[in-house]
Amino acid sequence: MPVEASCHCGPVRLIVQAAPSEITECNCSICRRYGVLWAYYPKSAVTFEPAPPATHTYIGMIAR
């Protein structure tokens, strides 16, 4: 069963084809506040929708 998530502002979704086999619980103040759990996948296992240019401006701002 695919797992879907989205970025904070919503227009970009990511999809992986299977649930993670392992998750990590971070104990920093932000992750604790929001109940965040982390999963790690190889880049080839993740599909992004929509693909760039939806992230072009954001990525450009980070690269500065």
Rank of each mutant, 00 (worst) to 15 (best):
T24M: 00
T47L: 09
R13L: 13
Y40E: 09
S29D: 09
V12M: 03
E49G: 00
I23S: 13
T55I: 10
M1E: 15
Y34R: 10
A63F: 03
R32D: 08
A54N: 03
A19I: 01
C7S: 06
G35W: 03
C28D: 05
P42Q: 10
P52S: 07
C28G: 04
P53Q: 05
I59G: 00
V46G: 06
R32L: 14
P20M: 02
C28S: 03
A5W: 08
H8F: 12
R64Y: 09
P20E: 01
S44E: 15
P20G: 04
H8W: 05
R32I: 08
I30K: 06
M61S: 14
L14W: 08
G60R: 01
W38H: 15
C26K: 04
W38S: 11
A39L: 03
T24A: 00
V3C: 12
R32Q: 14
A5D: 00
V46W: 03
E49S: 11
I30N: 07
M61Y: 13
V36G: 00
F48Y: 09
K43S: 15
R33E: 07
P50W: 02
A63P: 00
Q17E: 15
Q17A: 14
R64F: 07
R64W: 05
N27T: 09
E22H: 07
I30T: 12
A54D: 09
C26H: 02
A54Y: 04
Y58W: 15
W38I: 15
P50N: 01
Y34C: 07
G60A: 04
C7L: 02
I62H: 07
F48Q: 05
S21A: 14
V3H: 06
V12Y: 01
N27V: 05
I15S: 14
T55H: 03
A54M: 10
I15E: 14
L14C: 14
C28K: 02
G60H: 02
Q17C: 07
N27K: 08
P2I: 06
Y41H: 09
T47N: 05
E22D: 09
L37S: 14
S21D: 12
E25V: 12
W38T: 15
C26M: 06
C31M: 02
T24I: 13
L37W: 02
C9N: 07
A18C: 11
M1P: 15
I23K: 07
V3I: 12
W38M: 12
V3T: 10
R64S: 14
T55V: 11
Q17M: 11
W38N: 13
R64I: 08
A19S: 14
T55E: 09
T24E: 00
V3Q: 08
P11Y: 04
I62D: 03
H8Q: 04
P42R: 04
M61D: 12
S6T: 11
S44L: 10
I15T: 14
A63Y: 03
T24H: 04
N27C: 12
T47W: 02
P53W: 03
P53N: 02
V12K: 01
Y58C: 10
T57W: 05
A63N: 09
V16Y: 02
L37K: 13
Y34D: 08
R33M: 11
H56T: 15
E4T: 14
G10N: 05
C7M: 03
Y40C: 11
C31A: 06
Y58L: 13
V16T: 01
Y34H: 13
K43P: 06
T57D: 13
T57V: 13
A51Y: 05
E49H: 05
P20Y: 01
I30C: 03
E4G: 08
